[in-house]
């Protein structure tokens, strides 16, 4: 699944570790999501959505129109 997490993190000038602390996950988890190696759980997707104040669909793209 594609996502804009890296772009959104860069726009806020956060490191992976800073974003991870705000989402209550590890830095490795943030890295794995950014590189597309791990799809976040629904609760984590909601936390990401709330943190960036964007709907989930604007952060994650499952490839369906």
């Amino acid at each position: 699944m594609n996502n804009r997490l890296k772009v959104l993190r860069a726009m806020n000038d956060w490191s992976q570790a800073e974003l991870a602390a705000q989402l209550d996950v590890s830095r490795q988890a943030v890295n794995a999501i950014e590189t597309g190696k791990h799809d976040p759980s629904l609760p984590l997707a909601f936390r990401i959505s709330r943190l960036f104040n964007l709907p989930i669909e604007e952060i994650f793209d499952d490839g369906h129109e």
């Binding site: 996950v25 590890s26 490795q28 988890a29 794995a32 999501i33 791990h38 759980s41």
Partner: peptide, 8 residues
Amino acid sequence: NADEYVAA
């Protein structure tokens, strides 16, 4: 279960 990525 330290983290959802580790759990996966």
